[in-house]
Amino acid sequence: MVLTPIVTYTKALESLNLFSIPLSLEEGMDYLQKLSQQVILLSLYREYFPAEWTQSTASTQQYSDAIQCSHSPKEMEFLRLVEERLFPIGLEWESVEALEERLSYITVYPHDLDWYQRGIDEFDEFHQFLIHLLSQEFPVSLWQEQFGITPNFVLPVEQLDFEKLETLCRQAPEPLSYLYEVLSIVDHSTNCIWLDSCWECVEYFSWSRESLDFLTEQWKLALHLWDKESRLRSWIEEDKIRYLQLIDLWNQAKKS
Rank of each mutant, 00 (worst) to 15 (best):
M29V: 14
L212V: 03
T54K: 11
E122T: 15
L165C: 14
E210S: 09
A58G: 07
F147Y: 14
T4P: 00
F123I: 07
H111M: 14
D213Y: 07
S230M: 04
D65K: 11
H71K: 11
L86D: 05
P110Q: 09
S208D: 02
S56P: 12
D213S: 09
Y109G: 06
E122R: 10
I149V: 15
E158I: 13
E163F: 14
W93N: 01
I40Y: 07
S141G: 09
M76P: 07
Q128C: 13
I185P: 04
W226K: 14
L23D: 06
P73F: 04
F126P: 01
H111K: 12
C192R: 08
Q33T: 04
R46H: 12
L133F: 02
E145S: 12
L16T: 09
Q62W: 06
S135L: 13
L155W: 06
E100R: 12
W115R: 02
A58N: 06
D124Q: 07
W115T: 09
Q33V: 07
K74Q: 15
F147D: 07
I120K: 06
E47H: 03
S211C: 00
L212K: 06
P110A: 08
Q62A: 10
I89W: 03
M76A: 12
F78S: 06
L212A: 04
Q218T: 08
D114A: 12
V108Y: 03
T10Y: 05
D213G: 14
L18N: 07
Y178R: 11
P139T: 00
L215G: 03
R209C: 03
V82D: 05
E97M: 11
I131Y: 02
F138H: 00
E97V: 09
Q68F: 06
L81R: 01
W235S: 12
P5K: 07
L44P: 10
I106W: 12
D124F: 02
Q146A: 08
P173Y: 03
L13P: 10
H224M: 06
V39W: 09
C198N: 05
W93Y: 03
E97A: 13
A98S: 13
F87A: 12
R80A: 14
C192P: 05
T60D: 12
Q117I: 06
E210R: 02
Q117D: 10
E97G: 04
C169Y: 07
E229D: 12
I236P: 01
F126T: 00
I149G: 02
R85G: 01
L99V: 05
Y178I: 13
V140Y: 00
E26I: 04
S104G: 14
S135N: 09
D65W: 05
K11W: 10
L86K: 08
I106Q: 03
I131F: 00
L13F: 05
W199M: 08
R231E: 12
V108A: 02
L25F: 00
V108R: 05
V157F: 06
R46P: 05
P88D: 08
L179V: 11
A172I: 03
F214A: 01
I120D: 12
E125K: 13
D161N: 14
E27S: 10
V140E: 05
R231Q: 13
L18M: 09
S234R: 13
